[in-house]
Design a protein around this nucleic acid. Structure first.
Length: 422
DNA sequence: TCTGGGGTCCTAGGACCC
DNA sequence: TCTGGGGTCCTAGGACCC
């Protein structure tokens, strides 16, 4: 074997972030809610133990929450994003090659570390991250990303592994695969798991042993890669520089139902600004935009409405005033009075690198002027926060804003939210 | 009353072209 | 009147991930 990966995964990440600066949460059940305080999206070990399920709407488990005095928080992405960066910074001490896979997971290339004491190394990673950031993590090591994922998963369940597990020799890999359900393998979702079951493929070991033709036929080439990785054959490299996104989307539910088009316009304008900021950050321009608005998915028949409109631009753009103009025009075309709207948003599509701008003969926009304006706004927002400058179209009352009733302070990113020691 | 948000990749099938 | 075969591009839908 020549390749070696570690997967470092933060335990109950959002709940752990809340705990770092609030020790009274230690040892008690903690949950973090989705945007708008809707569903449970993160749970501490204690919250899992009392049977609070992932993804459940809060109101359905209100009783359990009160019974066990569960501490409930709105999501605080400003805090989680900053804590995530600190964890990644720490991990970069242990490998020159780190892939940030998600807000709470990173892959490390351990190259050809087979000669070193891998178990001790994994344990050191785990302890250092806890010491430097306060975040508990689990470390799984394996010859492919899929096996590193598996090692990580088992390390959390096994008392003996205690958050650090190395799967490199054939015997341990086989034992691990035999006691893992196929559906728990990275890349096998519930649909594929069900399909595999009908072919008597139940465990990860069964999956490892299917033929290439079977994998390709039933799970496509993506599934075939997974099967090969279970056999120890690496098919996925580390991606240190994330490839530019092909679509960028921004959407939110409203804090309360909205009926007036003017208020949806305000929310949409705000989403356009967010989305365009992401677009410029990756140095792209959009060639098209899809705008959508909808009622609740759970609305009764007749009160259900959802529609979208796609606009194609003559010249790809990243200019907010221009994008807002297109977005509002599209919204007015799909808005129907008489519905209780819950959500609006947009997708920016057909993205091209900013450097490859092709001018259109029909262009009526002063692109240089817009570019300077955007540069100035980006600078101001960088220095003074995202809400420092805005457009009249975004409104001032913002009644559509997210419900965030249980937000914790931004301990690490706002001076006003710093902890005080008496 | 209250039900998240943001992505990627693959495949099949239709339209169109020579 | 005969009505093939190969290729590309696009889109919708399905699968997956966190």
């Amino acid at each position: 074997m020549t390749s070696l990966f570690a997967l470092v995964d933060c335990n109950n990440f959002y709940a752990s972030c809340e705990r770092v600066f609030n020790p009274s949460l230690e040892g008690v059940p903690v949950v973090v809610l989705s945007n708008n305080d809707g569903c449970i999206i993160a749970r501490s070990a204690e919250a899992k133990a009392i049977g609070l399920p992932m993804g459940k709407p809060l109101f359905e488990v209100q009783k359990l929450i009160e019974q066990h005095h569960v501490q409930v928080f709105s999501s605080n992405y400003e805090l989680y994003g900053d804590m995530s960066a600190r964890v990644v910074e720490t991990l970069s001490q242990f490998s020159p090659h780190v892939e940030v896979y998600s807000i709470d997971e990173s892959f490390l290339d351990l190259g050809d570390f087979y000669k070193t004491d891998l178990v001790a190394y994994a344990r050191t990673i785990k302890e250092t991250v806890k010491l430097w950031t306060g975040i508990p993590v689990a470390v799984g090591v394996g010859p492919t990303k899929t096996l590193a994922k598996l090692a990580n998963r088992i390390s959390k369940k096994s008392k003996r592994a205690d958050g650090a597990l190395v799967l490199t020799d054939e015997y341990h890999i086989r034992e691990a695969l035999k006691r893992t359900e196929a559906g728990d393998v990275w890349g096998i979702g519930h649909r594929y798991a069900k399909k595999l079951q009908s072919y008597r493929v139940h465990t990860a070991w069964d999956l490892r042993n299917v033929t290439d033709a079977f994998a390709k036929k039933h799970l496509t080439v993506v599934g075939l890669r997974t099967v090969k990785e279970l056999r120890g054959e690496p098919c996925q490299d580390l991606e240190m520089v994330p490839p530019p996104k092909k679509n960028i989307c921004t959407s939110r539910s409203f804090g309360a139902a909205i009926t007036q088009v003017e208020e949806i316009e305000e929310a949409l304008s705000t989403h356009v600004v967010r989305c365009a900021t992401k677009l410029r950050k990756q140095k792209s321009r959009a060639g098209a935009m899809t705008v959508f608005c909808m009622t609740s998915r759970f609305a009764a028949e007749g009160e259900l409405y959802s529609n979208c409109r796609t606009v194609y631009f003559d010249t790809p753009t990243d200019s907010e005033p221009e994008l807002i103009r297109y977005a509002l025009k599209a919204l007015r075309e799909i808005y129907r009075p008489g519905f209780r709207y819950r959500k609006t948003g947009l997708l920016l599509l057909d993205l091209v690198p900013s450097s490859s701008l092709q001018l259109s003969l029909l262009d009526t926009v002063d692109r240089e002027k817009h570019a300077m304006l955007m540069q100035t706004l980006d600078g101001l927002r960088e220095r003074f926060g995202h809400s420092a400058v805005g457009y009249a179209a975004q409104g001032t009352e913002q009644r559509w804003k997210l419900r965030q009733e249980r937000l914790s302070p931004c301990y690490t990113t706002r001076l006003s939210d710093l902890l005080r020691v008496r």
